[in-house]
Design a protein around this nucleic acid. Structure first.
Length: 237
DNA sequence: AATGACATCAACCGCGAGGAG
DNA sequence: TCTCCTCGCGGTTGATGTCAT
């Protein structure tokens, strides 16, 4: 049993949007904002379902959308993010203001995948394709990808999170931890800040030695004259 | 010029999460 | 606690464009 459709589709239009529909939707949202997508088509005078309106707005009409092809730099960043996050397209897209998850997903499926295969890399694992597989590059399947199992708990010192924002050292500490955690997963850091729970993340890439990775990130991003790794190492682990 | 193969991308579908009552 | 509803996400489809023969 499937769930009920989000709305009654009888008499509703599907397929490509016309300029007139675009104009109606655009001017409605710019004038009224979005309270409830379900009501948008009714109020805007469109014979579409709310879901279709939402998609059209997000992927095409939003004024802040960046047009044009993705640059090579953006492409490389997508590859890097995909190695860490997997097919979490909305998470990946959030790193590219003005780009949509749909756009990045399409770009990945039509171009980047091919590029990686040509480079001899498995697009799912980002690891070199085994020589025995090199003649059957097309045969890479989801089954060949094994999700990393290790999970690391990082305890951010509560004092650092709660300290007086005017304290310069605290601000440095928080900013630097934040920079480091951005490299891992910003959303989890934000959740940690809100809940004050221990920060947990499940790396979607093979980290080998978590502490070494954190240490490397720390050296790359933190002014060691202000905060030494040894000091933070003691508080974290 | 006609046709088929392939590439691209907008749009759809089904599902899960989470909020409201 | 349960049910219903909306939203957002990821996978997939299909229309259209482009290229090769």
């Amino acid at each position: 049993m499937g769930r009920q459709p989000c709305c009654d589709k009888i008499g509703l239009k599907r397929g490509p949007w016309t300029m007139e529909e675009d104009h109606k939707l655009m001017s409605f949202i710019l004038n009224n904002g979005i309270q409830c997508w379900r009501m948008v088509p009714k109020l805007a005078g469109l014979l579409r379902c709310g879901k279709s309106c939402r998609l059209r707005w997000i992927n095409y009409l939003r004024p802040d959308l960046k047009r044009g092809a993705l640059s090579e730099m953006e492409e490389n960043q997508i590859i890097e993010l995909h190695a860490r996050l997997g097919n979490r397209w909305s998470k990946i897209a959030s790193h590219f203001p003005g780009r949509t998850d749909n756009e990045i997903k399409n770009h990945w499926n039509t171009r980047i995948k091919k590029r990686l295969k040509l480079q001899g890399l498995n697009p799912l694992t980002h690891q070199p394709i085994e020589p025995k597989d090199s003649n059957v590059v097309e045969d890479i399947t989801e089954e060949s990808y094994v999700e990393p199992q290790n999970e690391t708990i990082v305890k951010i010192p509560a004092e650092a999170a709660k300290n007086d924002q005017n304290d310069e050292n605290s601000i440095h500490l928080i900013n630097n931890i934040e920079m480091m955690c951005t490299s891992l997963d910003m959303d989890l850091w934000m959740t940690h800040k809100e809940t004050n729970n221990p920060l947990t993340y499940s790396p979607s890439f093979s980290m080998g030695d978590d502490r070494n990775t954190l240490q490397q990130l720390w050296f790359e991003s933190v002014d060691s004259s202000i905060l030494s790794w040894d000091g933070i190492n003691q508080q974290f682990f």
